[in-house]
Design a protein around this nucleic acid. Sequence first.
DNA 1: GATGAGCGA
Length: 87
Amino acid sequence: MATSLYVGNLPFTSSQSSVEALFAQHGTPISVNLIMDRVTGRPRGFGFVEMEDNDARNAIAALNGTDFEGRTLRVNEAEKRPAPRRW
DNA sequence: GATGAGCGA
């Protein structure tokens, strides 16, 4: 079973691949998804990483509260997505 | 800077 991780307080200079590389040190990222404002194209400073739950727990413990490129990372299990919208 | 986007076949 895989768990979705919320990773927040990211430096705006970070990219999907740098986050993936970071989490790869503490588990196997299944997918990495940095959220950006679809209208302005601006990064929103947070994202989501999916991992097997044991890897997820390990990554949270290892990375939450640590410093990453000048920001203190926030890592925890992600909340559910907002209500579904009809396209 | 703070809890997503995906949507066509």
